[in-house]
Amino acid sequence: MSGDESLLASRAEQLRRAFDDSFAHAEATAQSERVELLIIRVGPDPHAIRLSETGGVFADRRITRVPGPLPELAGLVSLRGALVPVYDLRLLLGYGSGPPLRWLVLDAGGALGLGFDQVDGHLVASPAAIVAEPGGANGAGGRARHVVELPSGGCAPLLSVAALAEDIEARVRRTRPPKERSR
């Protein structure tokens, strides 16, 4: 028991020192070489999203189900004073439906959200860690064309939120009547 107490005390001391040390570091310079990635879990697989393509990450937001032109539409959610449609990333990537969506990420414009199961973490990677997927030249529908090496081993497909948003927009547009479409 004394061993566990000393472990906890040392861990708390370590956290406290790290927090204090963060204010003692020199002012950080801009590093254009690094890429900010968000590692999420869709179904059983990890995926990566560029933070630069997102407008925010949210958890535990109430999604109101509404009828829509696409079956992937999970519903509407209120974010920052605006109604945003949320699409189920599991259905978009072909994993099938699952438990209620807890996490969602906004696109850069804040026009739509993509719902998924879990956030695994935040990853700052070098551009060299992003490689083209072998045989994955076709990136239609926002599906990954590159993969990211994960620090824990393995790799995760890199999703393009912009491409997914464009794809959804195109599909929605195709479902509208011609008169509305020309407007």
Binding site: E27, A28, T29, E36, L51, T54, G55, G56, V124
Partner: peptide, 27 residues
């Protein structure tokens, strides 16, 4: 994460904020 996103969107002006946000995220 959202602070990082916002700092990234702020461009050069948000770089120092991005560093702080990153430290907060690490913590």
């Amino acid at each position: 994460i959202n602070a990082t996103i916002e700092a990234t969107g702020a461009g050069h002006a948000g770089e120092r904020f991005a560093v702080v946000a990153d430290e907060i995220r690490k913590l």
